[in-house]
């Protein structure tokens, strides 16, 4: 291991550092710092624009009215329909993602000897790399059109849930792996059946880590608009009925951005701001949950 590094260096012979090498070293450092700065500049610009443009048109109406009330005559309306839609669809997604995701993670870590483990792990990786838009199209083909359900909040939630599954599987698997094997053995040595060891000892031990993973997964899919186009479709009116067409916050931002109304574009910025703030708060909560052990 040590020799590989040494073989590659043919420059280390001279006693003092040559000016060329000194300059090269300094140049590399400058370029690295410059590159890092270039990466951070867009972040600051985006956050600045988001806060300036988003806050200037954010008001109570944003939370109490729906997109249907945005008019050319200057009534600003709001995104209530989209907020309600996002919450309801995320709730559906959460149920699907948590049950299947955590179940699969338990399968992968606690039943390692099962012959399906390699295939499930492979397919989990496949799902991880699947573009969100593909998932939306699949739910369109399967549920919206195939089963004849039509566009609905449930279909939207289903697509978000499918996207959540591999995220939750991976996060949960990581924390379950951290649970010491001796705890499982201690439980089994007390004469507890395996399922009780998993449910009453392994899962509670990993609880905060699992919660963190779930929150991050929700935060991640809450920003997905692409799959909603084909599943929930969008709806500028407020609805609480998940069998109806529904909008979600990111979808409403997308649609409003293209509307020929300044009020709508201003709403898009406010929507984007609220969305990003919600995601930031969620990740802070997740970090807090992770630290509280």
């Amino acid at each position: 291991m040590v020799t590989r590094a040494s073989q590659n260096i043919q420059v280390g012979i001279s006693k003092t550092l040559s000016p060329a090498r000194r300059a090269q070293n300094a140049l590399a450092m400058v370029l690295v710092a410059l590159g890092t700065l270039l990466v951070l500049v867009p972040l600051f610009l985006i956050l600045k624009d988001l806060f300036v443009k988003g806050f200037s048109s954010l008001n109570l109406q944003f939370f109490t009215q729906s997109q249907s009330e945005i008019t050319f005559l200057g009534s600003a309306g709001g995104f209530l329909n989209a907020i309600v839609g996002s919450v309801m669809m995320l709730a559906v997604a959460l149920v699907i993602g948590v049950i299947i995701g955590i179940g699969t993670a338990i399968f992968l870590t606690e039943y390692r000897e099962h012959r399906l483990v390699p295939s499930v792990r492979l397919m989990g990786d496949v799902l991880t790399g699947m573009p969100a838009i593909v998932v939306g199209l699949v739910i369109y083909g399967l549920v919206v059109r195939g089963l004849g359900f039509g566009y609905s909040g449930i279909a939207g939630g289903l697509s978000l849930g499918l996207i959540m599954i591999p995220v939750i599987v991976r996060a949960t698997e990581e924390v379950l792996k951290l649970v010491p094997q001796t705890l499982r053995e201690a439980g089994l040595a007390l004469g507890l059946p395996r399922w009780k060891v998993i449910m009453n000892i392994v899962l509670p031990t990993a609880r905060s880590g699992i919660i963190t993973g779930v929150i991050l997964a929700v935060a991640r899919v809450s920003g997905e608009a692409a799959p909603l186009i084909f599943t929930a479709f969008g709806n500028s009116f407020l609805t609480w009925d998940p069998t109806q067409k529904m909008s979600g916050l990111p979808l409403a931002v997308y649609r409003s951005a293209f509307e020929p109304s300044e009020a709508a574009v201003a709403r898009a910025w406010s929507g984007a701001l609220v969305l990003v703030l919600a995601i930031l708060v969620a990740s802070l909560v997740a970090r807090f949950a992770a630290r509280k052990r």
Binding site: V39, L40, P42, L43, L45, I46, D49, L50, K53, A219, R220, S222, G223, E224, A225, A226, P250, L251, V253, Y254, A257, V265, A268, W269, A272, L275, V276, I279, L280, S283
Partner: peptide
């Protein structure tokens, strides 16, 4: 901060792209 950049949704990037 770089993690933060990753957490921003696609649609927000798009909005920023068109208007800024």
């Amino acid at each position: 901060l770089i993690e933060l950049l990753a957490a921003i949704p696609s649609v927000v990037y798009g909005l920023w792209g068109i208007f800024v």
